[in-house]
Design a protein around this nucleic acid. Structure first.
Lengths: 194, 194
DNA sequence: CTTGCAACAAACCGAGCGGTTGGTTATTAT
DNA sequence: ATAATAACCAACCGCTCGGTTTGTTGCAAG
């Protein structure tokens, strides 16, 4: 990787971390520059402005990270147990500091969907993609599921509950509540089967 | 009501609206002053700083509004149907602009829980109070519910799903997805019964 | 009548923000 | 050797923000 690509990647990684911790609007360019050890000229050589930097972080960091997180769970032979294992495992491995920061995608949705159309559309695309993945996974075992289920509604409900779980655990600063919600969510998911 | 109380209440109401639409940090004092038609001196006569104004809005506007919204649903003879009616009715009466703004409490939780301890504790208190209300309501019909339910977990799950529903509908800018999630949520709630 | 305080108004301040500008260095092509 | 370009630095700019200060008005008590 060339020096320039390294610099660019470093900016992306550090900015992704800053956005995850403080949100997009509260993320300061000077903080990024300090952490990267570069000057503002360097940043503006690689990105035309703060918004474009945010878009790049979303597309080049968050989206791949997001897919890499959910895909394995949904590719299992039994996506029901795949999801439950995924959620449960997340509860166990998660430390409190992570619980407090929440899901990057959900955070950006809450913060930026009403503020910037570019962010909104990118978030929407990612959400629809995730929903499609869940629907596809559930479709593969449709014969094991209760009849008359509307799989896309179910998928949205799963994601909504998961997002809500991260939201609730922010105020309590521990992962107990997260665990409670996830337990109930797993119960709901397993109840999808006949 | 005296002039001073009127001014104070006007500040609270308009600030509540601004926070609901733009979040606390992005809410500008000068916007509030313009909408109120007052000067900065007037505002700082009634509130010592922006943070205290935010706290006052939370306690004097959001908390009462919040309780007034949820209480009736939970005071029904059958809180299960009370909640379902409450959710369904919210879907029907809600216009898209409201759907986009989300729940004030959840918004503040997402934005401020990690930023300011004063907000975090106030939000936490309100969430625990709501959870207690739901648990109490469900307890009154415990004999009709499935055995071995952990009512506090159930209550958190209901709130989490509801919050997640508002979050999801922000990116799509319509209430369709909200409705899907609420439908599934009502299914889950009704399934709590034997 | 005037003194005093409640209830504001208006101008101002420093800090931090995103963004721009004019250079500087290192590498590569000719 | 020289010209050009990629990659970066440091200083600066205008703007908006929350907050402060000083000044004004109206009413009410003595």
């Amino acid at each position: 990787m060339s020096d320039a690509e390294q610099t660019r990647q470093k900016i992306l990684d550090i900015t992704a971390d800053e956005i995850h911790h403080h949100g997009f609007q509260s993320t300061s360019l000077s903080t990024i520059l300090n952490r990267c050890g570069i000057s503002k000229g360097a940043l503006y050589y690689h990105f035309s402005n703060k918004l474009e930097l945010g878009y790049a972080v979303f597309e080049e960091v968050y989206v791949p990270m997001f897919l890499a997180t959910w895909q394995p769970a949904l590719s299992q032979d039994d996506p029901i147990e795949g999801l439950c294992d995924f959620f449960t495992n997340m509860c166990e491995t998660m430390v409190c500091s992570e619980a407090v920061c929440g899901c990057p995608l959900n955070n950006l949705c809450e913060e930026m969907a009403n503020v910037d159309e570019g962010f909104r559309l990118r978030i929407l695309t990612m959400q629809q993609k995730l929903n499609g993945l869940i629907v596809d996974a559930l479709s593969t075992i449709e014969h094991d599921l209760r009849p008359n289920l509307q799989l896309d509604h179910v998928a949205y409900f799963i994601v909504a509950s998961f997002n809500g779980a991260t939201s609730l655990s922010k105020s309590s600063r521990n992962k107990e509540i997260f665990q409670y919600v996830i337990d109930e969510l797993c119960g709901y998911i397993r109840n999808l089967k006949k």
